[in-house]
Design a binder for these strands. Sequence first.
DNA 1: AGCCTGACCTAGG
DNA 2: TCCTAGGCCAGGC
Length: 112
Amino acid sequence: MQEETFYEKVYAVVRLVPVGRVTSYGAIAKYLGAARSSRLVGWAMNVCHGEQSDVPAHRVVNRIGMLSGKAHFETPTAMQSLLENEGVQVIDDQIQNFSQVFWDPSTELGWD
DNA sequence: AGCCTGACCTAGG
DNA sequence: TCCTAGGCCAGGC
């Protein structure tokens, strides 16, 4: 575990995100014990984008549930399309029922 | 080696 | 309640 870098940890958590659910950068960072390093999560996603990793970056949004990273996908609509394909309703780059589809690792995984 | 930027979050006015 | 400022770590120039 310690051998894994911050990115590896981020990827691991993102990969644990169930289908039809989304999480936030801050939630992941907080779960990793780096709540103040939420930017690194976004940076990790950027690196992940270049990698062929099976990291569902489309399931990661900001704290308000907005598809802030959609611009970094292959296409501006790829993120929304992927989320809608998984059953997540997205309107105007904004996830609907965000509180319901939100998946917090600190809560879900934290409860053991 | 130093400065700037970035898919963010929290706090203060 | 909305807007502005600061801070965090890593990568690029």
